[in-house]
Simulated scan of single mutants.
Amino acid sequence: MHQHHKINYIEMPSKDLNKSKVFFSMVFGWTFTDYGPAYCAFSNEGINGGFYLADLSISSHTGAPLIVLYSSNLEASQAAVLAAGGSILKPIFSFPGGRRFQFSDPNGSEYAVWSE
């Protein structure tokens, strides 16, 4: 159910939609629906969203929001990111409330994964 004034959907740039779909499918088990050659959507992943074709990437260093995913096994998630062609930007570190790591996907966009 949609909730009034709550974050409902997120769209992220992708230099190569196929790379994004393969990476997020392999690492996090996401599935996608294609809407033409320049857009694909995902749903039921904590929030619904999509990737749009653009010669851009997201990075917290340029002021973009950091998209953070949850994992019940941080070490396994970090290994899966590497196995699927991602790069670790910040290896697992502790912060108040848990641990996390930051990575870039094969298109150069930055994300993070956290756990208690």
Rank of each mutant, 00 (worst) to 15 (best):
H2A: 14
H5T: 11
H5F: 10
K6H: 15
K6W: 14
I7R: 14
N8Y: 13
E11H: 11
P13E: 02
P13I: 00
D16A: 07
L17S: 04
K19H: 07
K19P: 06
K19N: 03
S20D: 03
S20Q: 09
V22T: 03
V27E: 07
V27F: 04
W30C: 01
T31Q: 11
F32S: 00
D34Y: 09
A38Y: 13
Y39N: 03
F42I: 05
F42V: 03
N44S: 14
I47M: 12
G50H: 02
A54G: 01
L56F: 11
I58G: 07
S59F: 04
S60F: 02
H61P: 05
G63M: 11
L66E: 10
I67V: 14
I67Q: 06
V68M: 01
L69E: 07
S71Q: 04
L74I: 04
L74R: 08
E75N: 13
E75Q: 11
A76N: 02
S77I: 02
A80S: 02
A84D: 04
I88V: 08
K90L: 13
P91F: 09
I92S: 05
S94A: 12
S94G: 12
P96Q: 06
G98Y: 05
R99S: 15
F103K: 06
F103V: 12
S104W: 05
S104D: 13
D105A: 01
G108R: 03
S109W: 07
E110G: 08
E110S: 10
V113R: 03
W114Q: 14
W114Y: 13
